[in-house]
Design a binder for these strands. Structure first.
Lengths: 380, 380
DNA sequence: TTTGTTGCCGAAACCGGTTTCGGTCCTAAG
DNA sequence: CTTAGGACCGAAACCGGTTTCGGCAACAAA
C-alpha cells in the first residue's frame, strides 16, 4: 500500500531520492543518515562510510532549500547588479557570471542574481534577499571608494566579498585586478615610445578602481621623471561623450598631449571620436591606451591598446572565496590581486609630432575645440 | 518562557515574521492563515481580509523555499547561459538580465543563473536545477533552429519560454525581435540610396535568428526586384575574423558589392577590418549595416548603422510571460514579437562607385584578397 | 560485581510552511 | 421540531531535511 503511493509519487516527481528513501534502504533513521552525511562525531566511521557510499550510489542530493529552512543557509551566492550607470557593468558581466556560476555549481551552490536601479534600492534588495534566505551573502561588483553596501553588510554581519579595493580595505576580503601597476606600465610604455606630454582621462571618482588607476598614472609619471600637469588630468569622466569633451579640452591646450591614457576603453572611444572628427591619426599623431580589454577595443580602428583582464578567472576566484568564507566564517580575511597585461595594438606608436607641432596641426580646428570647458569632468 | 526564547531567536534572526507569529497575533491556526493567504474557498471573506491586512501590517512574506518543500515550486526562473561561443551572449546579457530580474522581483520571484560549457552540459544542468527545485522552468536565450533544449523540456514537461522562434514554433510560447522585417527594411534602405549589388553576411545557421534574418534579406531583395546572387551570400559566419575572410571573398568578386548587410554587429566588424586595411571608405565606397545595436557599433568609425533592440524590454516581457505560464500552465501559448528600428549612422551612404569601378579600385589589393576561398562560411 | 564512561544510534521535536480531514454551528428544507 | 447541507475553522499530518536528547550496550576502572 504505502510503498505503492510512494512509488507513484516518485515516478511523477522525476524520481528524486529523498533522505527517507536512503534511510529505509539502509535500515537507519533519517536522523542518523543526516548526521552521517554531515560528519557528526557521534557516528561510527563504519556506518558513515556505508551511508556516504549508499548516497553516492543512489544519487542522493539533499534539497538545499529543505536544509535551509532549518539551517538558515541556502547555499546561494547573491549578486546584485546596479543599473544606474547603464554601461558600468556590461563589458565584464557575461564572462564574470560564467566564472561565478562555475565556482558555485562546482560546489553545488547557486547564483541568485538581482538588479536594482539605485543605490538605496540595492541595499533594500540585498537585505530582503538575505531575509528571504535567497542569498547567504553577496559578491559586490564594482566596489566604490566609500561603499554603502560594505557599511550595511558589515553592520548586519552579512558575509560578502568585494570585487575591488575600497578606501579602507585592511579588514576586508577582496579580489581585485591590479590596475595601479598597469597604469604605471602604460605610462612607461608611452615614455619608451618617446612621449613626454601624457594626459590622463579618469572615470567617475566614486569607483574604487578610479583611485588606483589615477594613482598608477601619477606614480608612473613620477617614476619617469615627468611632472604631471594638472591640465593634463581629467577626472570623473563617465561616458564616451564626456570623454570626447575632455579630449577637446586637452587638444585645445597650448601644449596638447601626444599620448592619452584612459581609465577605461569606453573613455578611449571619446578620444577616438574627436580624433576621427578632425582627422587626427591615432597611433602616430596621437597615441591612446585604454583599460578593460573589452570587445569595443577591437572594434575601434586602429585597434585600441588596452589591458585585458580575465573576468572569468575573477568570477571563479570570487565565487570560491565566497563559499570558503561561508564555510569558515572566522577564517582570516583573504585578499587577492590579479595582474592584467597590456595588449599592444595600433593605437600606440612613437609620436610623429612634438606637442608644439601638434598644437600647430590642431590650430585650424580650435573653433571646434574651444567650446569645451577646462573642467569638463563631473565629480560625484 | 516560551515567548522569551521566541523573542531571542527573532532578534538574532533579523526579526523575520513567520506564519506562526502571524497566526498567534490573529488567534488563528497557521493552517487557516495559510489557506486565507492562498485564497482557499473555505475561508470567509471577512477573515481572509483580516489575515491579509495583518500580514501586510506585520510585513509577513512567506519563505519561498519553505513553501517549495511542500509545493515543489520555488518561484524561481532559471536561466542557463551557454558559453561555447564566447561572444554569443555578451552584448545583450546585462540589459536582458536587468529586464528579467525586474519582472521577477516585481512578483517576488528570483532569478537563478547558471552557465554551461556545452550543449549536453546545458541539458544536464537544466535537469538538475529542476530536480533540485532551484528553478521552476527556464527562459531559453538564443534559441536554435532545432533546439535540443526545447525537445528535452517539452518531453519532461518542464515549463519554458523561448527567446526566439525555432523551426517549428506553432505550439511554443516565445518572445522574439522581428528581424525579418528589419532586414527587408535594410535592403530597402540600401536600394533607396542607389545600391544594387548588395551582399549578405549571415551568422551561424544553427541559430534560429539566422534563418529569419537571411529570409528577410532574400525577401527584401525580391521586393526590390533584385535577384540575390548566391556569390553575394555568405552564411554560417561566426566571428569577426571569419567575417573579414568572407568580406575578402566578396571584394574579390568581379562585381563586388557596394553594400554589405550583416546579421550582427560583430560580423560588421569584419567588414570594417578589411575596409580599414585596404583604405576603402566606409559609408561611400562601401556601405554596411549591422544588427544588434551593440556598443561596438558606436565604437566603430564611422558609426555603424544598426538595428537597436531593447533587451531590457525583452527581459521584462519574457519574465512576465514565464511567471504567467507557471501560474496558469494550461493557458494557450503566448507569442510576442517586438520591432527593432534602424539607427542610421555614417556607415551607409549613396554609392560613389559602381561595382565595376569598385572592382577597379580594388584591383591593386587582389593579392590580399585572393587567398580567400569562395565558401568561407562554416556550416554547422 | 558495581559503577562510571564512552561510543553509537533511535526517537522525537523542530523549521516554516501546505493540505487533508473532520467537526462545529448556522441555516433552510422537510 | 428535526435534519440535511453548507460555510468556516481547528487539528493534525506532511514535506525533506536538521538537531537535541536519551538510552542501550560495551568496556574500563573500582
Amino acid at each position: 500500500m504505502r510503498s505503492d503511493t510512494k512509488l507513484d509519487r516518485r515516478s511523477r516527481n522525476n524520481a528524486r531520492v529523498t533522505i527517507t528513501d536512503l534511510s529505509q534502504a539502509l535500515c537507519l533513521t533519517k536522523g542518523t543518515v543526516s548526521r552521517a552525511l554531515n560528519g557528526y562525531p557521534d557516528i561510527s566511521e563504519a556506518t558513515r562510510l556505508r551511508v556516504v557510499r549508499a548516497a553516492q550510489a543512489m544519487g542522493y542530493r539533499p534539497l538545499t532549500h529543505a536544509q535551509a529552512i532549518k539551517t538558515g543557509r541556502s547555499r546561494s551566492i547573491g549578486f546584485v547588479v546596479e543599473l544606474s550607470q547603464k554601461d558600468a557593468h556590461r563589458p565584464f558581466l557575461a564572462e564574470f557570471l560564467a566564472g561565478l556560476t562555475q565556482a558555485a555549481s562546482y560546489e553545488g551552490w547557486t547564483l541568485t542574481v538581482a538588479t536594482s536601479e539605485t543605490e538605496a534600492d540595492t541595499l533594500k534588495i540585498m537585505r530582503s534577499l538575505v531575509q528571504q534566505q535567497k542569498a547567504d551573502g553577496f559578491i559586490l561588483p564594482r566596489v566604490l571608494w566609500q561603499d554603502p553596501r560594505i557599511a550595511l553588510l558589515s553592520a548586519e554581519k552579512i558575509p560578502f566579498i568585494c570585487y575591488g579595493r575600497p578606501k579602507n580595505y585592511e579588514n576586508l576580503s577582496y579580489f581585485d585586478i591590479e590596475s595601479e601597476l598597469s597604469m604605471r606600465e602604460a605610462v612607461q610604455h608611452f615614455v619608451d615610445l618617446g612621449h613626454q606630454q601624457i594626459a590622463y582621462i579618469g572615470s567617475a571618482t566614486h569607483y574604487a578602481f578610479s583611485h588606483h588607476r589615477r594613482d598608477g598614472y601619477l606614480r608612473g609619471m613620477n617614476e619617469a621623471g615627468l611632472v604631471p600637469d594638472p591640465f593634463l588630468i581629467k577626472e570623473g569622466v563617465v561616458s564616451a561623450e564626456d570623454a570626447a569633451e575632455a579630449t577637446r579640452g586637452l587638444l585645445a591646450l597650448d601644449e596638447p598631449p601626444t599620448a592619452v591614457l584612459c581609465a577605461t576603453d569606453t573613455l578611449a572611444r571619446g578620444v577616438y571620436e574627436v580624433a576621427n572628427q578632425i582627422g587626427l591619426k591615432i597611433g602616430s599623431e596621437i597615441s591612446v591606451i585604454g583599460y578593460d580589454g573589452s570587445p569595443e577595443a577591437s572594434a575601434m580602428w586602429p585597434h585600441l591598446s588596452t589591458f585585458s583582464i580575465d573576468n572569468r578567472k575573477a568570477g571563479v576566484a570570487l565565487g570560491t572565496m565566497f563559499i570558503d568564507r561561508i564555510r569558515e566564517p572566522d577564517a582570516p580575511v583573504v585578499q587577492t590581486l590579479l595582474q592584467s597585461h597590456l595588449c599592444r595594438a595600433g593605437s600606440t606608436g612613437a609620436p610623429v609630432l612634438s606637442p608644439e607641432q601638434l598644437a600647430h596641426r590642431l590650430a585650424p580646428f580650435q573653433g571646434q575645440l574651444i567650446h569645451s570647458h577646462q573642467n569638463s569632468g563631473r565629480e560625484r
